[in-house]
């Protein structure tokens, strides 16, 4: 009842302001970090460096977008790093087909989608816990990736879609454009379609969703499918950047950065609450930290320690802010 009273009292403007603040979420942290690095180095906020940051963030943004769908359904996808590796190898191998090298792009994406759908089927129809299924997939798909590349690095120095990884339009890297496109598409699906509404509802309460007539199986299949598909796209992006792929090393621990971005973005691990814009900001915070710490000259070891602590601190601040601000 206290909530009711509180809501009645706050005039609509106050409520509106609150919702803006909530939507902004971690943006102030991102801005603060950027300003701090600028003050420390003097060359952080240059067009050139920001373009590099975007490029570095892009693959994680794409993976984290897929992860946002999954976490919104109250699931988790630990297999995206491995799927990315397998897809990258498939993409490079397909790019070697004479005359059909451009097919590497759809092949890589479809390989990712296929792995994602297998996860989805196991979770939606066999009702297995997402953590277990995707943990298994993390190892299995990693093995498959090594098998596909015969445990060596596959090269194509004449990669037909290399422009994706290294080209730009008006100074904006292709990688960044793809990442932004993925975010916009995700935003549209989540906010503008029935499926998006169902994703939020399913994450909020699976059983209530089923009783409300929602096809919960479709929601789960879609979430893990799209997470796999975006991991596949990430594989293509990565292959395009490197002209190569290695089943053992590529994408190691990428799933953790993706999860960190989603959580930094304010999406609840319990499901049903969160937004793709938050995820974008979360991924940018991680990229800004990596880039800024290098510019400042912090050693590799300390980068790890500082990054981890900033993630915890940022989320702690966010929780505290929500608690004292909205009181719930």
């Amino acid at each position: 009842m206290s909530d009711t009273v509180r809501l009645q009292d706050s005039s609509r403007q106050v409520a509106k302001m609150k919702s803006v603040v909530t939507a902004l979420g971690m943006l102030p942290v991102l801005v603060l970090l950027a300003v701090a690095f600028q003050m420390m180095t003097g060359n952080f906020l240059t067009a050139n460096n920001l373009s590099i940051v975007m490029q570095q963030a892009s693959i994680n943004i794409v993976l984290a977008a897929g992860m946002t769908f999954v976490i919104l359904t109250s699931g988790i996808d630990l297999s995206v790093g491995s799927i990315l590796a397998a897809s990258a190898i498939a993409a490079v191998q397909a790019s070697l087909w004479p005359g059909l090298g451009l097919l590497g792009v759809p092949v890589g994406i479809l390989v990712g989608l296929a792995f994602g759908l297998v996860n989805g089927v196991l979770i939606a129809f066999f009702k297995l816990p997402p953590f277990i299924v995707t943990l298994g997939a993390l190892t299995t798909v990693r093995g498959v990736a090594r098998l596909m590349g015969e445990d060596t690095t596959v090269f194509n120095s004449d990669l037909p879609f290399a422009i994706i990884g290294n080209g730009d339009i008006l100074g904006i890297p292709w990688l960044a454009i793809i990442a932004i496109a993925v975010v916009l598409l995700s935003w549209f699906v989540l906010r503008g379609t029935v499926l998006g509404t169902w994703i939020y509802a399913t994450g909020g309460n699976h059983e209530a969703a089923r009783l409300a007539g929602i096809k919960v199986w479709l929601v789960l299949l879609f979430a893990y499918g799209i997470s796999g598909l975006f991991a596949g796209l990430g594989g293509v992006m990565s292959a395009a950047r490197l002209y190569a792929a290695n089943g053992l090393q590529l994408g190691q621990a990428y799933e953790l950065d993706a999860i960190a971005a989603v959580i930094l973005g304010g999406t609840s691990l319990v499901g049903g609450v969160g937004s793709i814009w938050g995820t974008l900001i979360g991924a940018l915070i991680i990229a800004v930290l990596s880039n800024g710490l290098i510019l400042v000259g912090v050693s590799d070891i300390w980068q790890f320690i500082i990054k981890g602590m900033v993630i915890i601190l940022a989320v702690a601040l966010d929780r505290y802010r929500l608690k004292s601000g909205a009181g719930s």
Binding site: G192, T193, V194, L195, G196, T197, W198, Y200, A201, G204, N205, A208, A209, L211, A212, G213, I214, G272, V273
Partner: peptide, 27 residues
């Protein structure tokens, strides 16, 4: 019953959102 984190509007509409949607499932 309810989706507690969702609005009144979404809770009322959840079962008919599909029927009301434009082609392609656009709300």
């Amino acid at each position: 019953g309810l989706f507690l984190d969702m609005s009144i509007s979404e809770n009322v509409n959840i079962a008919v959102a599909e029927k009301d949607a434009y082609p392609g499932g656009v709300r």
